[in-house]
Structure formats: C-alpha cells, structure tokens
C-alpha cells in the first residue's frame, strides 16, 4: 500500500521563541527548526503500517528549500521518498491543503496520515480541509489505527473530550495523529546514510496551478503576560480574602 504523510517543520517547541518587533510573526533567524512532533508520530505510524502490510511511505511538505533537513529526518526514520512543494511564502491552512490535494492526485495513495496539528500555529485544520477538498472520509485525533485485512477500511480510535470514540472509515481516508498514537523511533545511523540517496522531488508551487491567496491574515502576535511574583499570605483568612476579592475565584 502507498501511504502519504504530509509533514511540516516548526521551530523547536522546547525553545522559547521571540516575537518580531512589529508583531507580524515570530523571529525565525537563528531558531532551530525540527520536524513537528505530531508529524513524527504520523511518520512512525506510516512506517509501522508499511512494516506490517508492505508498500511505500511518501512524505510531502509544502515549504521553503530549507525544510529539506527536516524531510531528510523523516527519510532517515525510514520513509521511502519525499516531495517538497517549494514556496517561499507563508501559506495558510487552506492553501497548504490545496497543494496537498494536488499531490494526492498525483500520487493516489491508499491512505493519508498526518499530524493533527503543527505546534507552531496550532491551527489544527489542514487534515480536515484536505479531506473536504478531496471528499474523503476523515478520522482525526487518532490514538489507535488498525487496518482491515483487505486494506479497504481503517478502525480508528479517536481521543474526544472525556473519552474515546472508535470509528470505521473506508480507505482512502485522511487520518490525523494524536499524541498517544505511538512513540516515534530514533533515526538510525544506517538510516541516515541511506536517506542521503533517497529521492527528494522538488515541485515549485506555481506548477500546481492552485490559488494560494491567504484567506486568513495574521494581524498581530503578542507574548502572554509575564507572570507576576507570588505573595506569601499570613493566614487562612487572608488567603480566602484574596481569593475572593483579588483573584475573584471564590
């Protein structure tokens, strides 16, 4: 089976990011980019599917040339080849989904598995929009995925508020990975060496003939308020007083 895995590079989530002076975005200069953690989980799931059912794992990203390093990481984990839809613009989820839909049409995979969201802007939309554009079933927030023996259906356990929901979708479908789906492997050194020789096809986004005009415009980014220091209260009475009148939580 052919598994398509859209991935995104994001600023290292463990790192503190700075907002640009004009508030238009975050300062990316000198920030270390990594593969989005949910994308890593999606790659891992795709590799496990391949290991179990055979086939091919194709990763795709819509980004600038500099995303090659992160895509290589996915290849080093074991993906078979990569497609980089090259753009120097910052695209919104709808435009990314349009580009992915085109790649879907070129590749005709049996299943698409991707992260539920990217941890940079936390949009959580690309998978859903892609499913809508392609009129495919979607199974979002997957914490468990099982394929039927004939590879025609997937049983997906979804993490929903307050519990788990198990659904069945016909393939091809769009599955988005949640945190608990699996624990991604480390790329092995032989894997990293092999990744160098794997195909990375670059397609300029202009060749796809899609409308990339943004439907969402970011007006301003602001850092959260700095935390004020704590106070030590003298008595229970004072604590209750403060909770009631200052924090207004009682």
């Amino acid at each position: 089976m052919k598994i398509l895995v859209p991935v995104k590079q994001v600023p290292n989530p463990d790192e503190k990011v700075k907002i640009k002076k004009d508030g238009s975005g975050i300062e990316l200069e000198g920030v270390k980019m990594v593969l989005n953690p949910f994308c890593e989980i999606a790659v891992e799931e795709a590799l496990r599917m391949k290991e179990k059912h055979g086939g091919e794992v194709v990763v795709v990203t819509v980004a600038g040339k500099d995303a090659e390093l992160q895509v290589r990481t996915a290849l080093a984990m074991g993906a078979d080849r990569a497609i980089l839809v090259e753009t120097n613009e910052e695209l919104d989820p709808a435009a990314i989904a349009s580009a992915l839909a085109k790649v879907y049409e070129m590749e005709s995979p049996d299943v698409v598995i991707m992260g539920k969201q990217a941890v940079d802007d936390d949009s959580n939309q690309v998978g859903q929009i892609l499913a809508a554009k392609l009129s495919l079933p979607q199974a979002t927030f997957a914490s468990k995925v099982e394929l039927s023996e004939d590879l025609k259906k997937a049983t997906v356990t979804r993490e929903v508020d307050g519990g788990l929901e198990t659904i069945e979708v016909e393939l091809p479908a769009i599955i988005t990975a949640d945190l608990r789906l699996n624990e991604p492997r480390y790329a092995s050194l032989p894997g990293i060496m092999r990744a160098k020789k794997k195909e990375m096809k670059v397609i300029p986004i202009s060749e796809l003939g899609i409308d990339t005009a943004p439907k969402v415009k970011v007006l301003k980014l602001e850092p959260p308020k700095e935390r004020a220091g704590g106070v030590i209260v003298g008595s229970v009475q004072e604590l209750v007083e403060k909770l009631k009148n200052e924090a207004k939580v009682l």
């Binding site: 090659e68 390093l69 290589r72 990481t73 080093a76 480390y186 790329a187 050194l189 990293i192 060496m193 990744a195 160098k196």
Partner: peptide
C-alpha cells in the same frame, strides 16, 4: 554536512 548535523542531533536527543 546535513548528514553530520542529523547524526549529531539524533544522538543529542537520545
């Protein structure tokens, strides 16, 4: 090289 960086980062993370 890219490869040297990926190898270092993988071991660093490990």
């Amino acid at each position: 090289t890219d490869e040297e960086r990926i190898i270092r980062d993988t071991v660093r993370e490990f």
